[in-house]
Design a protein around this nucleic acid. Structure first.
Lengths: 246, 246
DNA sequence: TAGTGGTCTAGACCACAAA
DNA sequence: TTGTGGTCTAGACCACTAA
């Protein structure tokens, strides 16, 4: 074991998680390129001196994340970036649109503080009336309206957040850098609704046009609710993709 | 091994998948209720005479699907149905509705053979004009229309499939038992559309009501396209849930 | 035929919860 | 202290791919 060895057997972190982090970093840092073959499982267990179960557990996590794929008899390969990550990972609108081949844009429609209404307080596990920061943004793709996002943040966790410019910098980066708030997980619901007059006008659609409506609660690593997000996507422009197991 | 033993060691299906199917069915059929503790891992491996790795692989799949959760030192429990995922596994309408607390029902609206139109042929990787079995079903929840499913099967893979009764038996079970066709993976798209006059009438909705529209191609273990499915869910009754990582 | 990932076995020790 | 799930080892045989 030396400084270059990424596997520390005296750490509290399980070996497979250490290996997962190590491989993930090597992939995202460009050490391996999409389509490249990873070392075989035997090479990995030799190199890191762990059992095959550890190697496979680490690779399983990378597979379920869509970063790599396996082919029996051939090997394990770095995946080509796809469009389907919107249903597995929390992805910023900017990255999402770039992957879809659009130029993203943002207009802040409204931003302010308000006391939490009971429905939202319940989702965020706070008392009704606690202070929320509400940010309403219009999202553009190639200059055309694509979605409206209404974000509700627990203000106590990010006081003064409204002073930042949400048109310029992703909200998630502001939360991470300024408030050390990281989104570890999120739960969301997806349904089809009809556009109200107000939504239709802002999205440049006829009244009652179908919208893909997503409500999402995001949680910190300690399972503390951070944000309640409502997104209204134009039904004629926005499509979700994903892959299922049988 | 006897007729009641759900684990068949001579089957091509891996043991952990057989165990997964068995446990999943027991949960969705109500054999265990939300909050109930499942047998411990040791009890399961004793009872089914498999190794612990097999038991854990089956349980892992149920966990990632949100059907069960584990607590170290306490046990493994059936999840409460607030945590639903139609976005990870291909799930039968019947199981899906039961998990949501509805009584499922099915009416076959139409069934017949037709030459594949070019759009569908492309999705199924066959030549335009090849024979397709088309099955159109109305899905009911507590007796009320919930969804319309239009299924297109490559008839060469399941000749005579139209002779079976799709109102009584899940299509997937017919394919598995009669044709040894297993769905291993699937890719789908999700969008919001407005109901046409015909869809609206069948779903008992006003014209142009918002629908959640899902198109799915299902693949065999050899990555052979088996089925092209179109599902129209009532926007006011059907909601997808899932969990994301940060 | 050689090498890959897929599945499976039979153990072991650990951290944690409950009695 | 007992029993749970979490992690890990060191093997084994299989199905599949490619040479």
């Amino acid at each position: 074991m030396n400084a270059r060895d990424p596997i520390n057997r005296h750490s509290n972190t399980p070996l497979y998680q250490q290996l997962y982090e190590h491989l993930r970093h090597k992939i995202s840092a460009g050490g391996w390129r999409p389509g490249d073959m990873l070392p075989t499982e035997n090479e990995l267990l030799d190199h890191y001196q762990v059992s095959r179960a550890v190697v496979r557990q680490a690779l399983d996590d990378l597979v379920s994340e869509g970063l790599i794929y396996r082919q029996r008899g051939r090997g394990t390969f770095v995946a080509h970036p796809t469009v389907e990550q919107g249903l597995v990972r929390v992805v910023s609108f900017t990255d999402d649109m770039r992957q879809r081949g659009f130029t993203p844009g943002t207009q802040v429609l409204a931003a302010g503080l308000l006391p939490a209404p009971p429905e939202i307080a319940g989702r965020l596990d706070i008392a009704p009336g606690e202070e929320l920061a509400r940010i309403e943004r219009l999202r553009l793709a190639d200059g055309e309206p694509m979605s409206i996002e209404v974000s509700h943040l627990v203000h106590a966790h990010c006081p003064g957040v409204l002073h930042f410019d949400f048109a310029q910098e992703p909200l998630r980066e502001i939360l991470q850098r300024q408030y050390d708030l990281r989104i570890e997980s999120a739960r969301q619901s997806i349904r089809a609704i009809a556009a109200t007059a107000e939504l239709a006008a802002r999205l440049d659609l006829p009244i009652a046009s179908p919208l893909l409506f997503i409500e999402r609660v995001s949680y910190s690593p300690h399972n503390l609710p951070i944000e309640f997000l409502q997104v209204y996507h134009r039904g004629d422009r926005y499509v979700l993709y994903n892959e299922l197991r049988g």
